[in-house]
Design a protein around this nucleic acid. Structure first.
Lengths: 146, 146
DNA sequence: GATAGATATTTTAGTTGATTAAACTATCAA
DNA sequence: TTGATAGTTTAATCAACTAAAATATCTATC
């Protein structure tokens, strides 16, 4: 399959199909990690959006999450109930709320981050040589934000 | 980072963090594809579990999905309402139901599969050489079922 | 300074999806 | 007939999300 003359699109498709299968296969691992921390996927996304120490306004959170402002209220409510986030006031404009992580939130986020960064068991099946080749190759993948 | 003397675990971690970031970044693309077909992630998972032409029993579906039998009933109900799946009887044991795809279900599944197999825009940012290296590397990734 | 918008967030009310527990029905097999 | 098996129903719950109305606050203007 896919000799040296294959088109770039065909190449990308082949790569993608493998990666996609790997994403699917490793999904349960990620669910498990979230479960261990008693977090929903949404909670996790929210935690990662709250990395600015000064906190972020509800509006900017809603925008980042691509959802309704009232939905952001709900998400932050849940984090707050869990003691992971808190609403602070912005001196100078009492309409806005700055949502920031509590010490527990910071700790939880760090622990979650650590666990999510740990490779799923599937990846450890590869031997050293293959991992090295893979590392070199995935370093070329485009990166967003962070 | 990570010279030739890094441990296998460190190597795997480095690979994984890149892959994981890519999974997150390309998530919206997958959501969009599902949305275009008016399917939830659950529906999609269900469609892909129904590839056996003879159909599968409710019990085996519940097991495959790691859920309660009544949940499987609900999922199949939804597929049936959409005209994508149907319950058939097993000659010889009238207790069991064999769930199979309808012609529309087969068609929908094929279309979904085609669209999900299409690489996300992020991947097309790589040039040919990088894609070739990546192809070679990802071919070593372990594969489940399918 | 009063007031008329504009802004930021919350509340209320409702929808859909995902999921479980428990009770129930139908059927099979010994 | 009795017990096991396959599946469904019912009654809940939680998560995710939207629309519309309400509240509080700020800002610019008359």
């Amino acid at each position: 399959m896919a000799g040296p003359s294959s088109t770039k699109a065909a190449l990308a498709a082949e790569v993608w199909q493998r990666l996609f299968a790997f994403i699917i296969d490793t999904g349960p691992h990620r669910s498990q990690v979230l479960g261990q921390h008693d977090l929903t996927p949404n909670d996790s996304r929210a935690l990662f959006a709250l990395d600015v120490p000064e906190g972020r306004t509800m509006g900017s959170l809603a925008e980042a999450w691509g959802c309704d402002a009232s939905n952001a209220t709900w998400v932050v409510d849940r984090l707050e109930k869990k003691g992971l986030a808190e609403r602070r006031s912005l001196a100078g404009d009492r309409r806005v709320r700055l949502v920031g992580l509590t010490p527990l939130g910071i700790k939880t986020k760090a622990a979650l981050s650590r666990d999510l960064d740990r490779p799923p068991p599937e990846l450890l099946e590869l031997d050293r040589t293959d991992l090295e080749a893979l590392r070199k190759a995935v370093q070329k993948l485009p990166q967003r934000r962070r």
